[in-house]
Amino acid sequence: MPFLAQRLIADRLTCVRGERTLFADLSFFIENHAGLTLTGPNGVGKTSLLRILAGLLQPSRGEVRIEPDHDIPAAEQCCYIGVRDGLKGSLTPSEHISFWRAMAGERRSRGLEDDSSALERFDLSDFASSPTAWLSTGQRRRLALTRLLCAARPVWLLDEPLNGLDTWAAEELKRLAARHLEDGGIIVAASHQPLDWPAMTVLAVGEPNEARLSRREPLA
């Protein structure tokens, strides 16, 4: 089931927080089947860049486009999993899943037949009907990541996706990412750990490698 989006374009993005310019005139584009890993020291603007791509933060200059846009705003083609996991302690994992699916209201991602299979994917079936407050940090993180499966959106924006995940869950996420790219999706992930996912190019935010990128060469 190929995705509609062909390319995600960041056009001369500038982000100023307070008095500090985090990055200026950052341009790149990512075609489908490809991904971008954002690296760089803390405070360099990785999360801000992800939030700009997600439409949650207005860039001081520049714009984000998805082409062709099919009259859907860029933000509605992205699924952003931030550091804050968006989970409610008193809801159960399966209530979260059905809420997310109702909110997405879109076609399903491949391999997601029903709510329970989304939980199985990250080995959360045993906790399906216990309050989320009882889950461990890693389990909460896994539950947050199942949101990727609830909305079939072409662009995945992941902030530190490996945080708190054990080896098995990290491998499972890698498998999901690989399949998403195969399906024609796009992934942008900010990570301190190296991501050995296929077709991911590294972009060091805040370093002068924008010169190469701003020539609008495909990254993958």
Partner: peptide
Amino acid sequence: AEDGSLDMLRMARL
């Protein structure tokens, strides 16, 4: 806003 679900609401099709 605190737990991040607002981000999801802002990006939802609703």
